[in-house]
């Protein structure tokens, strides 16, 4: 009778330890999933990713595939920026076909400067290097300092404004 009884004790201790571990890790998961700063941190990373992708899209245009390129511009944006791009669509297409240039962008760096998770608004700064290859002649590169705003639309973040940071005599 002592063997099963001591085994019950061992099993009881193991079960209690396992229950304690499950309680602890369960709480850990729950608190991580409900941790505002962790969620905020994830949103920040998502905003930066979206911003860099959108900036990349908006600064990439090949005259041979201009139509899909401009479609991508529109897709990457929201609000007034999207309206502007939609309205200017035909104009851009005529210009790019005339110029016969291929523009590619390389994201050098970027940072989220403001993030209002609740309002779904964010501000970013992005450093890019543009390479413009004309129909004839050598490609030229230039760097641009961009500042933009993003707005959450549904579950994704899209650019609602973007522009070069002016070189002002501060």
């Amino acid at each position: 009778m002592t063997r099963p009884r001591s085994l019950v004790l061992v099993a009881l201790v193991l079960a209690l330890v396992a229950a304690g571990a499950a309680g602890w890790t369960g709480w850990s998961w729950w608190s991580a999933a409900h941790d505002d700063s962790l969620r905020y941190s994830q949103t920040r990373d998502e905003v930066l990713r979206s911003a860099q992708q959108a900036v990349q899209n908006l600064n990439t245009l090949d005259y041979r595939t201009a139509e899909s390129g401009v479609d991508l511009w529109v897709e990457s944006t929201t609000g007034t920026l999207r309206d502007q791009l939609t309205q200017g669509r035909q104009n851009f297409l005529t210009q790019i076909r005339k110029a016969k240039t291929v523009t590619t962008a390389k994201i050098l760096d970027g940072a989220v400067t403001e993030l209002d998770d609740r309002a779904g608004k964010a501000s970013v700064i992005v450093a890019i290097e543009l390479t413009v290859t004309p129909a004839a002649g050598r490609p030229t590169t230039k760097r641009e300092r961009l500042a933009g705003q993003l707005t959450r639309t549904g579950s994704t973040w899209k650019l609602s404004s973007i522009g070069q940071v002016p070189v002002s005599a501060a």
Binding site: A11, L14, A15, V17, A18, A19, A21, A22, W24, T25, G26
Partner: peptide
């Protein structure tokens, strides 16, 4: 119980 709870914990 111990095994199930242990698995849950993991």
């Amino acid at each position: 119980c111990a095994v199930l709870l242990g698995g849950l914990a993991v």
